[in-house]
């Protein structure tokens, strides 16, 4: 070894150690960074698909009225036409997929209406609200009101 390097040999070795470290890191990085990272931005492109794989539990009103045409006709044009079926009947994607699999949840006509229509000071004033003290005899609401279209005649 020449004289110039002789007194720096320890530094050369240290530098080599650092270089090995850097190279190792670069190899690790090349191997371990997930595929598709950075395609759309600084994230794994596959994460988009991961967020999409979940199966919906709510089928959506358009799926319901495909079969339930009687209910659709009663519901359309009434005051509850903006209310989705599953708002009262629960999540029914399974039922929409296979009607025999599970039956629609039949809400209790004595209580379900209070979910929305129970009086509350924070509700918009023009929203129809019921104080059970004045307007409730313990019977079912659908005795007088048609749940699918309360402004229409109730079903007898």
């Amino acid at each position: 070894m020449n004289r110039f390097l002789k007194d720096k040999e320890h530094l050369v070795r240290m530098a080599a150690l650092f270089a090995v470290g850097v190279v190792l890191f670069l190899i690790l990085k090349a191997v371990l960074v997930p595929k598709g990272f950075g395609v759309y931005g600084h994230y794994r492109a596959g994460a988009l698909a991961d967020n999409r794989v979940r199966a919906p539990r709510f089928a959506g009103r358009s799926a319901c009225i495909e079969c339930h045409t009687d209910e659709r006709d009663a519901w359309k044009g009434g005051k509850h036409a903006g209310v989705g079926c599953e708002a009262c009947h629960g999540a029914l994607a399974k039922h929409a997929e296979d009607p025999s699999a599970s039956n629609a949840f039949k809400p209790d006509p004595k209580t379900i209406c209070f979910t929305c229509h129970l009086t509350n000071a924070a509700k918009p004033r023009k929203f129809p609200q019921i104080d059970p003290k004045n307007h409730f005899d313990g019977g079912a609401c659908n005795g007088c009101h048609s749940p699918h279209a309360p402004d229409k005649e109730p079903k007898k």
Partner: peptide
């Protein structure tokens, strides 16, 4: 995640679907 699994299938979000008003 704005029901990303629903909105990418042409459905609305679960909250919007079940909001009565």
């Amino acid at each position: 995640n704005l029901c990303y699994h629903r909105i990418t299938k042409g459905l609305t979000t679960a909250c919007c679907e079940s909001c009565p008003t």
